[in-house]
């Protein structure tokens, strides 16, 4: 493989990796605030992409369609928390898993009823000729994906480190008891977290839809890959989520390009799941996560 081909795979990897990173971030936000893994996370990504397609084809300019889609999915996330999560915030892990799994089924089917089974795409954000980096082509959308992902990551960092509310959310995650004594409203923190998580996931969906098609069924796969990314980076760590996402994207892309047996790219998706299983079985705290003492 030439350097040029190699770079081509790298660019493809970090592009899809960025979306995995955003999905993984969505998982991480909710997990840190509530201890819940939201199995409907991937559906938020899918809804973001499809909502943007609808808004755009309905006449909205692309920028407005993107913002509108993220806003709409955020509302879905808030409603999801209020209607399904709030009543079971104190319930067993199993009950919480089942509810988010049920929600993913409902959202996916609702999307199929609204948008049908066809995969849809958005036009690229900007009509620019592809760049050439050391012989490899980089489409403008890739730059958008990377740029917006970086912006979101930075914005989240600023929010959690610098604002009062962000600190409150972190306090709840680190020490619920102390947070409560300080008078932090847990209910609002959880609501906010689900909204933010849905928004981040939807942004990922909007970003990727011009590059790879989006259909009602894309969410399940994206969600599982996002979780694989989160677990790769160590569940609970936002930095790990981003690193895990990029790493997963690269691994996936390069293994298709490099490994001889994978001439059939049909196995591409299996690679992510194989990585997920290997990490779960061998090192559930993640490759980047720290080994913590098990509490009995």
């Amino acid at each position: 493989m030439s350097l040029q081909e190699f770079l081509q795979f790298v660019f493809a990897g970090i592009t899809s990796g960025s979306v995995y990173a955003l999905t993984a971030l969505g998982f991480t936000l909710i997990y840190n605030a509530t201890g819940i893994i939201n199995f409907a996370q991937g559906e938020f990504v899918m809804l973001g992409g499809l909502a943007a397609v609808s808004l755009h084809s309905g006449g909205a300019p692309l920028a407005l369609a993107a913002i509108g889609a993220v806003a709409a999915v955020t509302v879905v996330g808030l409603l999801f928390e209020l209607l399904a999560i709030r009543p079971l915030l104190n319930a067993s892990v199993l009950a919480q898993i089942i509810v988010t799994v049920g929600a993913s089924l409902a959202l996916r089917t609702a999307a199929m009823l609204i948008w049908g089974r066809e995969a849809m795409a958005l036009p690229a954000f900007t009509e620019r000729a592809p760049l050439s980096v050391l012989g490899a082509t980089v489409v403008a959308q890739t730059v958008w994906v990377l740029g917006v992902t970086a912006l979101i990551v930075i914005a989240l960092q600023v929010f959690y480190r610098r604002t009062m509310l962000g600190k409150a959310v972190r306090a709840c995650a680190v020490n619920p008891m102390a947070a409560r004594l300080l008078g932090i409203p847990y209910g609002r923190v959880v609501l906010l977290t689900f909204g933010a998580s849905a928004a981040v996931a939807a942004a990922g969906g909007v970003l990727i839809t011009p590059i790879s098609f989006m259909s009602y069924s894309s969410g399940a796969l994206l969600g599982l890959k996002g979780f694989a990314a989160a677990i790769l980076g160590g569940l609970g760590s936002p930095a790990g989520a981003v690193a895990g996402g990029l790493a997963l994207g690269l691994l996936e892309s390069l293994s298709v390009g490099l490994l001889p047996w994978s001439g059939t790219s049909g196995y591409k998706d299996a690679i992510a799941f194989l990585i997920l299983l290997l990490v779960l079985f061998a090192r559930p705290q993640g490759l980047l996560g720290q080994r913590t003492a098990q509490k009995v």
Binding site: A84, I98, V99, G102, A103, L105, A106, T109, A110, L113
Partner: peptide
């Protein structure tokens, strides 16, 4: 499927 998703919740 929609009904099952909602029913389970």
């Amino acid at each position: 499927l929609l009904a099952f998703g909602l029913l389970v919740i």
